[in-house]
């Protein structure tokens, strides 16, 4: 009984050298949680224990954008919510279209930064939101493949891609005045506050 251990003088060398797999899964998972998603995915291939650790929900939750519940609620596929967090992450790394296919959302797999790509068809422009003034021309550049010109005002090129965390960039050529509601919606989606937007927008 109690006789088991204490007096054992013996072999301190070679005795009890822990290997990584002797370490409890919670520890492995915590180690993984400090890494970025592609690293975690890579390490899942080490062995079974790592694979199990890499599937723990608590690792993935902090990698999501802060407003991810809102984002999930927007996406058409509501089955997502019940999936494992790691699978949700994988899903969000692919472009997910919503709002009748006029917008796409995805996250950067390494940083978790959010991206929103908006078709010109989803844009609303202050003052000239009359579709008769819009002309859609395909270009090589983006998946949306639209160059929009609002003929009346001579806007030659509208293209918006917005991302958060890494950078926020808006490419609105020629001072296009997109309606505030529209921008507000986009930025709520990205979890960016509107005051940031205004400054960027006006610059």
């Amino acid at each position: 009984m109690g006789a088991n251990a204490s007096a054992m003088p013996g072999e301190p060398n070679g005795l009890m050298r822990p290997k990584l797999e002797d370490i409890p899964e919670s520890c492995m998972a915590l180690v993984l949680s400090y890494l970025d998603p592609p690293e975690i995915a890579k390490l899942a291939r080490i062995n079974r224990a790592f694979r199990a650790a890499a599937s723990a929900d608590f690792i993935w939750v902090p990698k999501f954008p802060s407003n991810y519940n809102f984002i999930l609620s927007k996406l058409p596929d509501q089955g997502l919510i019940t999936m494992d967090k790691k699978d949700i992450y994988a899903r969000l790394c692919r472009p997910n279209s919503f709002d009748g296919g006029t917008k796409e959302f995805w996250i950067d797999k390494t940083t978790g930064g959010t991206y929103l790509s908006i078709s010109s068809k989803a844009m609303a422009i202050t003052g000239i939101d009359d579709r008769r003034y819009w002309n859609h021309i395909q270009t090589y550049e983006s998946r949306w493949v639209f160059e929009t010109s609002a003929r009346l005002f001579g806007f030659s090129h509208v293209y918006a891609q917005i991302c958060q965390k890494m950078n926020i960039f808006l490419l609105f050529k020629e001072n296009l005045h997109l309606s505030e509601d529209f921008l507000h919606n986009c930025f709520t989606f990205l979890g960016v506050q509107i005051f940031k937007l205004r400054r960027l927008y006006l610059d």
């Binding site: 899942a44 694979r51 890499a54």
Partner: peptide, 8 residues
């Protein structure tokens, strides 16, 4: 496993 994490 490869398939599971192929997205990365």
């Amino acid at each position: 496993v490869r398939k599971e994490f192929a997205w990365a």
